[in-house]
Amino acid sequence: MAVRTNWNVDHHCGHQVIHDLSDRPADRRAGFVRWLADTDCTDCWKAARDADATSQEQWLATKRAEEQQAATEWARRFDMPPLEGGERALAWGERSRHQLMTAAHTALVVEGFPVKSSVSKASGRRRCHGAHESTPRCRTREWQRSASLAGPTPSPRPQTTHAPP
């Protein structure tokens, strides 16, 4: 007995299409046919996608115009220097600069994001604060713990210093 490869599918849209499923594993064909029956046929799907693409393009153009207007007003208000480049690059650059600066302001000023960076006065180099303390190179967190427990005397363990980014 031969394994069936061509299936007649009644799609959700009402159209009936014969599908060649020879490229699918035989044990998965029946499940795929059930899924196909719950979807629109290829022609109806393409027509719906093309119609939706037009409305999506309109929505995106409206959103970009609003973002561009907000970025232009913001740049004028805060006296930002003009950008250089092509027309599309300028529009993208102004929107990106506005989004980046407002996100940074929100994170650092409004929400009070803690900035943990200390600079050694002697060397002028920034010390790592142990955010990746599981690595063997970074022992600053352990040094800070032992120094706080030991009191004013420094720990014999040397500090790991990194160049500023």
Rank of each mutant, 00 (worst) to 15 (best):
Glu87Val: 11
Asp10His: 09
Arg139Glu: 09
Ser134Glu: 15
Val17Glu: 14
Arg145Asn: 10
Asp79Gln: 04
Asp40Trp: 10
Leu83Glu: 03
Lys121Pro: 15
Trp7Asn: 09
Ala51Met: 04
Asp38Tyr: 04
Lys116Ile: 10
Arg137Ser: 11
Asp52Pro: 00
Ser146Trp: 08
Gly86Thr: 05
Glu133Val: 15
Ala53Thr: 05
His132Leu: 14
Gln68Pro: 00
Arg88Asn: 05
Ala103Arg: 07
Cys41Lys: 06
Asp38Gln: 13
Gly14His: 05
Cys41Met: 03
Gly93Gln: 08
Val17Arg: 10
Pro82Trp: 02
Gly124Met: 11
Gly151Lys: 05
Phe78Val: 09
Ala122Glu: 15
Ala104Ser: 08
Ser134Gln: 14
Arg141Ala: 12
His98Thr: 00
Trp45Tyr: 13
Arg77Phe: 00
Ser117Asn: 09
Val110Gly: 07
Arg34Ala: 14
Gly93Ser: 01
Thr102Trp: 03
Gly130Ser: 07
Ser117Gly: 05
His132Glu: 10
Leu90Pro: 04
Arg126Lys: 11
Trp35Glu: 12
Pro25His: 06
Glu87Tyr: 02
Ala103Trp: 02
Arg126Gly: 05
Cys44Tyr: 09
Pro164Ile: 11
Ser117Asp: 13
Ala71Thr: 01
Ala51Asn: 14
Lys116Met: 12
Arg157Cys: 02
Gln16Trp: 00
Phe113Pro: 00
Gly14Phe: 07
Leu100His: 09
Lys46Arg: 15
Ala71Arg: 00
Asp52Met: 10
Thr72Cys: 00
Phe78Asp: 00
Cys128Ile: 09
Ala48Asn: 15
Gln16Tyr: 03
Val109Phe: 10
Arg139Ser: 07
Thr153Met: 12
His105Pro: 04
Pro156Tyr: 10
Leu108Ala: 01
Glu73Arg: 08
Ala26Leu: 01
Met1Ile: 06
Pro158Ala: 06
Trp59Asn: 04
Ala89Tyr: 02
Ile18Thr: 12
Pro158Phe: 04
Ala53Val: 00
Glu133Gln: 14
Leu149Ser: 11
His132Phe: 08
Lys63Phe: 04
Glu87Ser: 05
Pro152Gly: 08
Thr39Ser: 12
Ser146Pro: 00
Arg34Gly: 04
Trp45Cys: 12
Lys121Leu: 15
Arg29Asp: 02
Leu100Asp: 07
Arg125Gly: 05
Glu84Phe: 00
Gly31Arg: 05
His98Asp: 01
His105Met: 11
Asp40Ile: 03
Thr135Trp: 10
Ala107Trp: 07
Ser148His: 13
Thr161Asp: 05
His11Ile: 02
Ser146Ala: 14
Arg126Thr: 13
Gly130Thr: 02
Asp50Trp: 08
Gly31Cys: 00
Ala48Asp: 15
His98Met: 11
Arg77Trp: 00
Ala150Ile: 10
Pro164Phe: 11
Glu142Val: 13
Pro165Trp: 06
Arg28Thr: 11
Ala61Ser: 12
Gly151Thr: 13
His162Lys: 13
Gly130Glu: 05
Leu60Phe: 09
Glu87Cys: 03
Gln68Lys: 02
Pro154Asp: 15
Glu57Leu: 10
Gly124Tyr: 08
Arg145Asp: 14
Leu100Asn: 12
Met80Gly: 00
Cys128Asp: 08
Thr140Arg: 11
His12Glu: 06
Gln69Glu: 11
Pro152Asn: 06
Cys44Val: 04
Arg24Gly: 03
Asp23Ala: 15
Ala26Pro: 07
Ala163Tyr: 04
Ala103Tyr: 01
Gly14Leu: 08
Gln56Lys: 14
Leu100Pro: 01
